[in-house]
Each structure stands twice: as C-alpha cells, then as structure tokens.
C-alpha cells in the first residue's frame, strides 16, 4: 500500500540573512515513517527542520504539505499538525512539568482535551507523571529531554521533528530516548524526523536516512543498507565524494 507523502522539500535553497546553507535539497517524509537526517557539523541538518517549520529564509524551491505547496510560518505549521522539538531541550525551567505540557498545547482550545492529552503523554513517560508538579529545572537531563518530546506531542501532531534529541545524554539514556521515539511512532502511527550527528544506533529505529554534507544531500538510503555500508563513516571523514 502506498503511503501518503506528508512533508516535502523540493529543490530547496535556504539559509539565514542571505547566506545559503541548503543547496538544492530534496527530502520527503511519508506518513508514519521514521526518517533520520544525519551528517557532520555544519552540514545543514538543523536547517532542514527549521525550513520545514518556516524558520529560515527560503531563497528558492518549495515546501509541500500533503502535496500542496505551502509558505511555512511557525504558528500555521503547528496547526497543520507539525511539531518541532528544538535542539537543547529548551524546556521552561521555572514552570512545572504540567505547565510545560500545557504550554505545548496552545493550539488546543478545549481544556478537557488538554487534560486528556496530558494524561496520555504521562502514560508514555511515567517518569514525568511522578514529577508533574515539580519545576522542570529540578529534572535530570534525560527527564528534561523526555519532557521536551512529551511537550511536542501535546498537539497530537502528524509529524514530529526532533533536533538532536540525544545531545548530552549518556549512552544508556540515548537508548531509552530512541526506544520512546519508536514507541510513539508505532502507538500513534506518527511520522518522525530525527536530526542526529553520527549515531549508528539511530539506524536501528529509522526506516530511511538522508545524509547531508555541506548543505547537500549526499546519501538517501534505507536504514538497513546504510547500517551495512561504510558510506556514513566516509562522509564524516570527508572521503565520500572522492571514492564514490
């Protein structure tokens, strides 16, 4: 069965303040799939997510949502069903866990529905349930990351964009975060796009991956194929184009 294409960048050239970061980038995310965007520092991975979310300057190319061209603006993209969890957790430290979740549900106007969704995400993240009235400044790094992801789920999005969700976490916590992401994807049939630096373990939970280098997509492949080749290492070593 063919899955519907949810989000697409076509021939995208984008950046900030006249500086071009992405060069002719083509990326698509299908309904219910988990896609990784990988690459070395400065490859433009986070810029891809920000472009989906309308936080960059699009110089040429298009963003499509369900095959319809859109002009992405954050508050409209959220309402369409896209949720973005920015790099560095960025939870509101002096608000409680519950207040953080309520903030994440801005586009949901029915208060009962907000309460229901809070309970729903608390079921996914039981650690947060126990600390619901605590200020998030008191949570551990891993719990803050869980909170950031949980907050991103409050709008019940069709697609979740995660920017380096494991940054600064111990290997054990990285595993837990990845397991939670896969659980969310399967429970809700929610598409997930994960930007990560260079974690082969990520390939265990994704369907497909794009590898970026200097703002260009240099590899687009299935997770299995990428995991069994040395292409990813070669991109990081800067030898990929030479031996391709």
């Amino acid at each position: 069965m063919n899955k519907e294409i949810l989000l697409q960048l076509k021939g995208m050239n984008a950046g900030y303040g006249g500086l071009r970061i992405l060069h002719d980038v083509n990326i698509q995310v299908d309904e219910g799939e988990v896609v990784a965007i990988m690459g070395p520092n400065g490859a433009g991975k986070s810029t891809v997510l920000k472009t989906f979310f309308g936080m960059t300057e699009i110089q040429s190319g298009s963003v499509k949502w369900r095959d319809k061209k859109i002009d992405p603006v954050p508050h409209e993209v959220v309402r369409m069903g896209v949720s973005y969890v920015p790099q560095g957790r960025r939870v509101f430290r002096y608000l409680t866990v519950e207040e953080n979740l309520e903030i994440g549900a801005y586009v949901v106007k029915d208060k009962k529905e907000v309460r229901r969704r809070i309970e729903e995400v608390m079921d996914i993240f039981p650690d947060l349930k126990a600390k619901r009235k605590e200020k998030s400044v008191n949570l551990s790094g891993g719990q803050q990351q869980m909170l950031a992801i949980a907050r991103g789920l409050m709008t019940d999005p069709h697609i979740l964009l995660l920017d380096e969700p494991t940054l600064g976490l111990s290997p054990k916590l990285v595993k837990t975060v990845f397991a939670k992401i896969k659980e969310i994807n399967e429970r809700r049939n929610m598409a997930v796009v994960i930007v990560e630096h260079n974690l082969k373990s990520l390939l265990g939970i994704v369907d497909r991956a794009y590898v970026l280098d200097h703002g260009k997509v240099v590899i687009e492949d299935t997770a299995e194929s990428l995991a069994s080749s040395d292409a990813l290492e070669r991109v990081f070593l800067g030898t990929y184009n030479k031996r391709k």
């Binding site: 508050h75 973005y84 920015p86 509101f92 608000l95 903030i103």
Partner: peptide
Amino acid sequence: SSFGRVLKAIREDEKALQVFGYK
C-alpha cells in the same frame, strides 16, 4: 492565569515558545 504562564515562558525562552504557535 494561563496568560501569566505564557509571560513567564517568554521570559525564559521566547523563541522556544514561538515553536508552539504563540504570537
């Protein structure tokens, strides 16, 4: 109020707040 909660969030990280659709 919930308005006050948003003000506190603005104080902490205005850009992060915009990600949820807040103007």
